[in-house]
Computed example of a mutant assay.
Amino acid sequence: MPDPTVLFPTVLGGVAALLRLPGLLRNPHDPLLRAVMAMLVAGVGVFFFTSVPVVAKINELTGVPNAAAPFDYFWAMACAASGIVLIINWRGGSPERIRRATRWCIGGYGTLCVALVVLFAQAEAPVERLRDLDTYYANTPYMREMIVLYLVGHTAAATVMASMCWRWLRHVGGELRAGLALMVTGYGLAIGFGLLKFTALGARWAGADWDVLSTEVARGFTSVAAPLIACGMVLPIVVRRFRGRWQDWTRYRRLEPLSRLVGGLAPTRAAVSVPLLASVGVRRLQRESLIHDGLLTLNPYFDLGLRARTLAEAVADGATGDRAAADADAAMVLAAVETMRADPERRVIASSRALQEPAGEDRDLVRISQALVHTWKRAAGGPGAGGATR
């Protein structure tokens, strides 16, 4: 059975990368999106390639004991570098400064990766260690330096990320603040991972055996840190996407009464077919377009005097400005529909040389639609309630 401490963060990171992929495909040259994708892919690589079965397979395929070590460290450095590049882009600034800082970061961690490979090539590490390589070779020349370099690079990146996210956290709110809080927690645990590793190494250098800190406790820290960081990155995206779709659906639903009343009044309708699986945002736009076309057709029938009287009565009854305006617009639209029905030959439209005012351009269509509902409820069985369906 796969190790859940490896499987869960690997799958979660993969899902997070897939959620980011559409945005990257639409904007392949966006440095921020590229940094996020690189970090997520590197994070998945870290957990996948450091799992014990994969480590053993890499060693077997290469025929070199512990060959997976520099390979795994490469993925860790790639994750660290992409995280810092991500922060550089988040922080903003001139494009030239961002490119320069990005080049320095990639160059620095690229050099570190080369140094790790060189040190491993110089070391003598004939015994394969799948779980405790760090502490087993803590006193072996070149292996010791390779391990320390890896931990320094990893811990430095986690510290920078935690610091930057913490400073940003204090200036934002909502889902972004929640996401940053998760990331700060995750990077705090990543710092703890490095400190535990250093502690276990220090114990080995002093002649003690605290290997459990490296092999068990530290691994537990990073297994929790990775999902927290991935969730922190994904949470703002998911919440914003869900909120946008929910707002589209709510507006679409609340526009239904007004759409039923005026949506079919235009003499000609645009031949635009909405696919069966079209998003609710597309359906909302189509409904709004039909309403605007209907209001434009009704414009010659609008009685602005009736609207003014209804508005004054609503204000006198204590209605707020927006609610009173919506009630007045609803009354004017209902009256215009009845007047238009009494003019089947459309003489008023044919003789109208100019519209009285823009039809619904600056009006709150949702408020008007909901005002129609209240009007029909008050006048149940009246002409508005029965004749609105098209």
Rank of each mutant, 00 (worst) to 15 (best):
V6D: 06
P9Q: 12
A16S: 08
P22M: 01
G23L: 01
D30M: 07
L40E: 11
V44T: 11
P53E: 09
V54P: 06
A69H: 09
F71H: 06
F71S: 05
M77I: 04
N89S: 09
G93Y: 01
R100A: 14
A101G: 01
T102R: 02
Y109S: 08
L112E: 15
C113V: 15
A123C: 04
V127E: 15
E128T: 15
P141W: 08
L151H: 10
L169S: 06
H171G: 10
E175M: 07
M183T: 01
Y187I: 01
G194Q: 03
G194C: 03
L195N: 04
A203C: 04
G207M: 02
R219I: 15
T222Q: 09
A225R: 09
V234C: 13
W246L: 13
R254W: 00
R260E: 00
V274T: 12
V282R: 09
D293A: 01
D293Y: 05
T297H: 14
F302Q: 02
V315L: 15
A319G: 05
T320V: 06
T320K: 04
D329K: 05
M332Y: 05
M332G: 03
A336H: 00
A336K: 02
A336S: 05
D343E: 08
P358A: 13
H374E: 15
A380R: 14
